[in-house]
Design a protein around this nucleic acid. Structure first.
Length: 888
DNA sequence: GCTCTGCGGAGAGGA
């Protein structure tokens, strides 16, 4: 039995006399989640009072296997022999975080804040781990060493390492592993498996064990340890995995640490215990200790407080992070055991840091809520939520290169989900949390689903695997921009100084004054420039022309955007300017994964595998580098410096995500449109406003608005121009203004009367059902058919709906592109049909942000058909104006 | 990457 609920009261610890002597206890009252709602009291005995000290009203508490008692007619609970007390079980702490917390709570905080830098021990450690996995999967040691070192080519090159010396070192590490493995495999056939992903609903833990041997966790350490016992923090890591395995019913009582530098080669010169593998027994004491440590972290994060180092017996004089720790606490004016050095940041910067730190941590909690849905939702609910494909029928498994696995399954019916080809996902036998699951990469997602994995699994279900990476990257960007950035940069970001511009004026673009102004602004910016580009105004061309001008004046340029698609769009235009002719030129380099980068840009994609020096040179010598903002926060990109960072679709980026890109450069140019979609964030907080929007408000003089659009007819653009751009948006020419279906060979007479006008409104009299409206979907499909029959090719028609469910509903009825507004941003079609779904009223956040409507309407070039419920639309002034305009 | 401690044991126990 598990007791679970929100804490309503926490009593102070007290000491009582029992028949077994003096014992301490603390009482916590919770309101259980069981629905009855009557508060119950739980008595925490002995060491669990430690957790009571960290508990606060409002936190969630989980108690496993409590003992039930009657006291004064009420049921009470207390901790027993099998009891674990867990604070905030919904907050998922990573196992490596528990490890660093145990070393020192400040270390945990510093790691979180500043990320893992690019350094040799880290890169080498990763390579050795990969070789270890390969050996477990039966690969040849020499092949594995060579392949894995080559794969790390770029990082090694940036660190100035040669392939041979790294191979030799990895070989030495791997030899220790192999020797030990051979002993084991002689007796234990098939008792191994590598890289085991675990998520714990009970303990609020997640992590990936390096390996399991006969079900027991094995952790690999690339260092040396000649003590008889494994290092304490290493044990902690293994104990976390043991705890999670026990939760799944595996009777784990042993953990193993494998120290790869404990080799026979050193035996002559070293004394001590040089066996690479050190086993230790996992008892209740350690398991409980780990739960209590995790509780400390969860409690600290509950109110976003900052650890000082006093929480544990940290001994700063031994710590390698002492200097960093003192600098961070000095600059952020934090209490710390190590002490402080340096002057604190100005108050407004401190306030900014705190505000965004909290906002990012809120976002992290929302990400954890996504994880929770893995076990809180039924498979059917997950599928309805578009977050999983369920009821897959496995059709085959085979081993492919490198002893990895390719798994196939048939997808029943026309199931849809957020999953995309190239995504990392969680494949399972049906239950991703308690069943057998593996992290996989999706290769193909049609009627047949194909994924690749390190280990085989029955491919019955595929789940979105939430990632904290963007949250982590935002934190490191925040850290870099406040603690490492040059003060000059901060002065303009905080509005203490106006951005400056050089006076030069040149003609870069001779047929569009605003675009030419924008390029001049960007090229002459001493600090930053902002380019406001409403739909169809040639943002991308302006960016490309700017990049060329910057490169010609000798600048090194970083081109970035939130999505891979936007980066590649910008790159395409940049290549049209004559840059990035091909790999030989290597003047433009695209940094990104093979699956993320668009096919026609793969020829300039930076290969990360190969000879270190060559790979590093390709990146370091490129005058133009393009990468997503998430990649800009990567270990590799954090080492790069640019003169100018140019960020496209900046209005869709959170402020810290934008910082990740602009931290890399002396000057920056943001291009965007704050009247289109804002950043996608889960929590409601400061992350919802983009840096672009904030700076446009703060320094309007740094901005140029592109005011001529090359996309929509006059009739189509009118509403958007009036409602969102104060009427300033104009067609670029008479040709654009007068665009009509006739120009592409369509006679309006061939269309049904109700959609004969360039902008029309149709009310199908449907009913909203959840996030769909089947009748409206029917009608949309009929309209699309009619448009096609009149002669518009399918590829020139697009359908936009607010919800993915309706997108799927319509998609079943037509072959043209159907997608959500959010996915349509950045593209356009000759004819656009918009399905509003809502009937009766316009309840729901999706309708509250009018910017979404702006995006939907401005995708159309020659014809726009709005399909919806007139009553619902008329119920709200903005939509009523839209309706009037469409029916005119 | 270091010099160190953090981990008990069956299991009930107070008012």
């Amino acid at each position: 039995m598990t007791l679970r609920g929100v804490i309503v009261a926490v009593e102070a610890e007290k000491t009582v006399e029992t028949q077994y002597g003096e014992r301490s206890l603390a009482e916590i009252t919770i309101r259980p989640d069981d629905g009855r709602g009557d508060p119950v009291t739980v008595t925490l005995w002995g060491k669990w009072t430690h957790t009571a000290e960290h508990a606060e009203p409002g936190m969630e508490l989980l108690v496993t296997d409590p003992e039930e008692d009657e006291f004064r007619g009420e049921t009470t609970y207390s901790t027993g022999s099998d009891t674990h007390v867990v604070l905030e079980p919904g907050f998922l702490v990573d196992v490596t975080a528990v490890r660093s917390w145990v070393q020192c709570p400040r270390m945990y905080y510093l790691n979180k804040l500043s990320g893992i830098p690019l350094n040799y021990p880290v890169v080498k450690g990763t390579v050795v781990h990969e070789v270890f996995g390969d050996l477990l999967r039966g690969l040849d040691l020499e092949d594995s060493v060579q392949n894995r070192v080559a794969e790390a080519g770029l990082e090694l090159g940036l660190l100035g390492y040669e392939q041979d010396e790294v191979e030799n070192e990895v070989r030495r590490n791997a030899a220790a592993i192999e020797g030990w493995l051979q002993q084991g495999t002689l007796t234990e056939e098939d008792a191994w498996r590598s890289e085991y992903t675990l998520i714990s609903p009970t303990y609020g833990l997640k992590g990936r064990a390096d390996a399991l041997r006969r079900g027991m966790p094995v952790e690999l350490k690339t260092g040396k340890n000649t003590n008889r016992e494994p290092r304490f923090q290493d044990k902690i890591q293994a104990v976390c995995y043991a705890l999670m395995l026990r939760e799944r019913g595996v009777p784990v009582n042993t953990g193993t640490l494998l120290y790869t530098k404990n080799t026979a080669l050193d035996r002559n010169e070293q004394s001590g215990d040089l066996a690479p593998a050190k086993e230790f027994s996992v008892g209740d004491g350690l398991l409980n200790f780990v739960v209590r440590q995790r509780n400390e972290i969860a409690a600290m994060e509950f109110d976003a407080s900052v650890p000082t180092g006093f929480e544990a017996d940290a001994k700063c004089e031994y710590c390698f992070e002492q200097d960093t720790c003192m600098v961070v606490s000095g600059r952020l004016d934090q209490e710390s055991k190590a002490g402080q050095v340096g002057t604190p940041l100005p108050d407004e910067e401190r306030e900014y840091f705190d505000r965004f730190y909290r906002a990012i941590e809120e976002e992290r909690r929302e990400t954890h809520a996504e994880y929770r849905k893995l076990w809180e939702q039924t498979p059917e609910e997950r599928a309805d939520d578009d977050r999983a494909l369920i009821d897959l029928e496995p059709t085959g498994q085979r081993q492919i290169d490198g002893e990895r696995w390719e798994l196939r399954a048939r997808k029943p019916g026309d199931a849809v989900s957020k999953l995309r080809e190239g995504d990392v996902a969680m494949a399972s036998d049906g239950d991703p949390v308690t069943g057998h699951s593996e992290l996989v990469r999706i290769r193909q997602l049609g009627e047949e689903v194909v994924v690749t994995a390190d280990e085989p699994v029955d491919l019955c279900r595929l789940d979105v695997y939430p990632s904290e990476i963007s949250v982590d990257r935002m934190l490191t960007a925040l850290h870099d921009s406040l603690l490492k950035a040059d003060p000059d940069r901060k002065d303009v970001l905080f509005g203490r100084r106006d951005p400056e511009f050089r006076d030069d004026a040149e003609t870069y673009i001779d047929n569009n004054e605003a675009q030419n102004d924008a390029v001049n602004r960007a090229v002459n910016a001493e600090d930053f420039a902002l380019v406001h580009g409403p739909p169809g105004t040639g943002k991308t061309y302006t960016i490309a022309r700017t990049v060329r001008a910057l490169v010609e004046q000798g600048d090194r340029v970083l081109v970035s955007a939130f999505t891979n698609r936007a980066v590649d769009n910008a790159l395409e235009a940049i290549r049209d300017q004559g840059l990035g002719a091909g790999r030989e030129e290597s003047d433009v380099v695209r940094v990104g994964t093979e699956t993320g980068v668009r096919e026609d840009m793969l020829d300039i994609r930076l290969e990360t595998e190969g000879r270190p020096n060559d790979r590093a040179a390709e990146l370091q010598q490129a005058p133009v580098v393009a990468a997503t903002t998430a990649s800009c926060g990567s270990r590799v990109m954090r080492e790069q410096q640019f003169d100018v960072a140019l960020v496209d679709e900046a209005s869709q980026l959170t402020e810290p995500a934008t910082l990740a890109a602009i931290n890399r450069a002396d000057r920056f140019v943001l291009v965007g449109d704050h009247e289109q979609l804002p950043p996608v964030v889960r929590a409601e907080n400061d992350l919802q406003t983009s840096l672009f929007e904030r700076l446009i408000d703060q320094s309007p003089e740094a901005g140029v608005m592109l005011d001529r659009q090359y996309r929509m007819s006059q009739r189509i653009q009118a509403f958007s121009s009036r409602e969102f751009y104060d009427g300033a948006l104009k067609p670029a020419s008479g040709e654009v203004a007068g665009r009509h279906l006739r120009d592409i060979g369509v006679d309006p007479a061939d269309l049904p009367a109700e959609i004969r006008n360039p902008v029309s409104f149709v009310d199908p009299d449907g009913r909203r059902e959840g996030n769909t409206n089947p009748r409206e979907a029917d009608r949309v499909a009929e309209i699309v058919d009619a448009v096609q029959s009149a002669g518009v090719p399918a590829e020139d028609i697009g359908v936009i709906a607010p919800f993915r469910a309706q997108v799927a509903e319509i998609g079943r009825r037509t072959d043209v592109t159907v997608d959500t507004v959010d996915r349509f941003q950045g593209s356009s079609e000759e004819v656009i049909v918009v399905s509003f779904v809502a009937t009766g009223d316009l309840d729901g956040p999706i309708f509250e942000d009018y910017r979404r409507v702006n995006v939907a309407l401005t995708r159309a070039k020659r014809a726009l058909v709005l399909v919806g419920d007139a009553g619902a639309l008329a119920s709200e002034p903005f939509y009523a104006r839209l309706l009037d305009w469409a029916r005119r």
